[in-house]
Computed example of a mutant assay.
Amino acid sequence: MNKGASVLSAEKIILNASVSDKTEAIRLAGELLQKAGHVTPAYVDKMLEREAMLTTYIGSGVAIPHGTNESKQEINSTGISVVQIPSGVDFGEGNTAYLLIGIAAVGDEHLEMLSNIAVICSEEENVKQILQAKTKEEIITLFEKGL
C-alpha cells in the first residue's frame, strides 16, 4: 500500500494537541479525515460508537480510532490522521494514549492499514519518535517507511 502521500499528509496531523477527554481526541482525529474529504461527518460519530463498544487503545500509548463495520458507506477514500497528545488522554482501564492514529479505509484496506500501523507502533522506538517529532514532515517520513 504505497500511497503514503495521499493516505497521510500534513493537513491530517496535529502536533501537541490538548484535549479534555477521549471523545474530544477521537473527534479531532475524525475531523481531520473529514476535512481532507476521506469521510462524511457521520463517520466521526461511528468512530465514537466503535470506541463505546470496544476500546481502540492498542498499548504503548497508542490508540487507533476507526469506524464500525456499518460505517463503510461513510468512507470516500482511504486515509489516516495523526494526533499527538503530549500530556496524554485517559482511554479507560488505566490506559493513557499519547498518540491517536485515526483511520478510514475503503473495502478491505483497513485490515492491511491496521496491521501496518500495529507493526510500526509495536516498536517502542517508533512510537517515541512519532511522539517526539517536532514537525509534521518527520511524522510523515516515519509512517511512509512502514506503510
Rank of each mutant, 00 (worst) to 15 (best):
H66I: 09
N69M: 05
E70Y: 06
P86T: 10
V83N: 13
L100R: 07
G107L: 11
L54H: 01
G67N: 08
L114Q: 09
A104K: 05
G107R: 14
T68C: 06
I58E: 01
F91T: 00
D108E: 15
L54A: 06
V89L: 07
G102K: 09
A104Q: 07
P65H: 04
A104W: 08
S60I: 09
L54P: 05
I103Y: 14
G94S: 05
D108I: 07
S87I: 12
A63L: 01
G107P: 05
L54N: 04
Q73G: 01
L114D: 14
V82T: 15
V82D: 15
A104F: 10
N76W: 09
T78R: 08
N76S: 05
T96V: 15
G59T: 05
L114M: 05
V62E: 02
I85V: 14
I117D: 04
I80K: 01
A97S: 14
D90R: 03
G92A: 02
P86W: 15
Y57P: 01
Q73S: 15
D108Q: 14
T55P: 12
S81I: 02
E109C: 05
A97C: 14
S115P: 00
I58Q: 02
Q84C: 11
L100G: 02
G61P: 06
G79M: 08
A97T: 12
G61R: 03
V83I: 10
Y98W: 14
V106R: 15
I103T: 09
H66W: 08
I117M: 08
S60Q: 07
E109A: 14
S87K: 13
I80F: 04
E93P: 02
I103W: 08
P65W: 00
